[in-house]
Write a protein that binds this DNA or RNA. Structure first.
Lengths: 214, 214
DNA sequence: ATGCTAACGCAATTCGCTTCCCGTTAAGAG
DNA sequence: CTCTTAACGGGAAGCGAATTGCGTTAGCAT
């Protein structure tokens, strides 16, 4: 299926998408039915094996309803952010290598989660050519980076790493090798990748190679 | 356009694609005309703004001819590997930081090259759900990694880094932050990214964090 | 409880991509 | 040079995604 076609209307903030004037009753029932159906379809068929038509059919609503409410597949996916979670506990107590290893394990867990993986696959694939999808992706990633920088900040407070370390850059360097294998080199993720990458990044940080630009 | 649909036939080695029995004369003229048209379309319209129909029209051949010869958009892109080059000189003379910086600059140059960027975008987007595209991508990346490991090997010979350094892993760690920004976080590439990443990776290597697993 | 109309269901329609059929052209073996 | 048939051209047909119009249902303000 083609994810890209008409999602640019999402970028218009006010948007004329249905559902905002009378959000209660039938509208909200339709909403949860469609979102549930979308999750089920993603898990069972994958993003490439489904589409708004099939999701609408599974939800028991008309295809046109889904198009009017979400506008596109990406619009629907945007509504599914944060719908999938995994239970990998993050820590910021140090040592930094351990904390970052857990972040790596979280990325692995997310990439193994059936629904989240399909969600990510769909957004990454579409983001290449669709500005709306690209925005969803970049905001999601930016939010995750931001939420994780505290780990680096704490390590700096403990004196484990230089105080002027670029925290966001540390997280990027950590996350990049995982996504690189998932979407670029198409290689499997070695079991010890979280440990290896965390160790490498911490080495670089401690050597002062990831200080914030002045 | 949807890149994915029918390219699985490419995975069948023998394949019944036309053009192999009588490769001369008209067949070869058609081939170069279509490949030229594809490059022009990629540069002018981008991969999402073109398709086999438009490429065929520009090449002055019938749509069915293109489908019979290449089977799919990915099949055509596969034939365009190595069609785009950039002139960034790589070195393996050391220091390793300088050599790796040049590799980073090469990645930046490729991502700035109009045709190569579109080629990469198309393959990355399709590879998410299309096994044939994934194979094209993974083989292309693997070949580039392989061709670049000599830089790390030379550094090891010079004694600049541990002898048992995992050369391919060094290149992956170097390349990952670039592709991560291009396709995942959708952030721009900072001008000094090659220098920064190269310095960080060399720090990790010299600390012994990227040795080959025993 | 009533009225306005947002939101929905249904079906027809459009649009682009892909495949298929058949007549025509020309590559390459002999 | 002749013959076989690979490869091509043109157009029709199939297919799925996306859009649109219109009648119906129901949210919510009054």
């Amino acid at each position: 299926m083609d994810i890209v076609t008409q999602s640019q209307r999402l970028t218009q903030e006010g948007s004329r998408l249905a559902g905002s004037v009378r959000p209660g009753g039938r509208t909200s029932r339709t909403r949860v039915a469609v979102l549930d159906a979308a999750i089920a379809e993603l898990a069972e068929k994958g993003f490439a094996g489904t589409g708004l038509e099939k999701i609408a059919a599974r939800a028991g609503v008309a295809t046109s309803t889904v198009y009017r409410r979400w506008g596109s597949f990406i619009g629907l996916l945007q509504d599914l952010v944060d719908e999938t979670t995994v239970d990998v506990a993050l820590t910021d107590t140090g040592p930094l290598t351990d904390d970052l290893t857990r972040v790596g394990r979280l990325i692995v867990a997310l990439s193994s989660h059936p629904v989240h993986r399909q969600w990510m696959d769909a957004v990454v694939s579409a983001a290449v050519s669709d500005p709306a999808a690209r925005q969803v992706l970049s905001q999601t990633i930016a939010r995750r980076i931001q939420a994780t920088t505290v780990i680096v900040a704490r390590a700096a407070e403990r004196g484990e790493i230089p105080a002027d370390t670029d925290a966001a850059e540390v997280i990027r360097m950590l996350a990049a090798p995982f996504y690189y294998r998932l979407y670029i080199s198409a290689e499997p993720l070695p079991d010890d990748l979280p440990e290896r990458v965390a160790a490498a990044v911490v080495s670089a940080v401690q050597a002062g190679a990831l200080r914030a630009a002045p």
